[in-house]
C-alpha cells in the first residue's frame, strides 16, 4: 500500500515520471539504479537534517548537487532533466 495522503497530483506526476524514466532507459538498468541511489541519498540526508542527526562537519547534499548528479545521469535527455527540476525544491 502507498501512503497516498491527500496529494494525488504529486503522486500521479511521480508515477508518470518514474515510468517515463524506466521506459527511456529500458536497456540501461544501471541508469535507473543510479537515479534511485541519488534519491535515496538525498532522502536520507534530508531526514538526518530534520532530526538533527547529521554528523558535525559533514556536508549534506544540496539540491543543486542532486540536480547536477541527475543532469550527468540524464545526459542528452533534456526533457527528463527538466521534469526532474519540477520535483526538486529549490532547483
Amino acid at each position: 500500500a502507498m501512503p497516498l495522503g491527500s496529494q494525488p497530483v504529486e503522486f500521479n506526476h511521480a508515477i508518470n515520471y518514474v515510468n517515463k524514466i524506466k521506459n527511456r532507459f529500458q536497456g540501461q538498468p544501471d541508469v535507473y539504479k543510479a537515479f534511485l541511489e541519488i534519491l535515496h541519498t538525498y532522502q536520507k540526508e534530508q531526514r538526518n537534517l530534520k532530526e538533527g542527526l547529521s554528523s558535525p562537519g559533514s556536508q549534506p547534499l544540496t539540491e543543486q548537487e542532486v540536480y547536477q548528479q541527475v543532469a550527468k545521469l540524464f545526459e542528452n535527455q533534456e526533457d527528463l532533466l527538466d521534469e526532474f527540476g519540477q520535483f526538486l525544491p529549490d532547483a
Binding site: 496529494q7 506526476h13 511521480a14 508515477i15 518514474v18 535515496h40 538525498y42 520535483f87 525544491p89
Partner: peptide
C-alpha cells in the same frame, strides 16, 4: 497501466514527497 516494483514505489514516494515539499515552500 502501471507495473510498479517495490523499488519503483519507493522512487514514486520519494519524488512525490519532494514535490510536496517544493509546493509547501512556494
Amino acid at each position: 497501466n502501471y507495473d510498479l516494483t517495490p523499488e519503483d514505489s519507493t522512487a514514486v514516494f520519494m519524488l512525490s514527497s519532494m514535490a510536496r515539499q517544493k509546493r509547501d515552500l512556494l
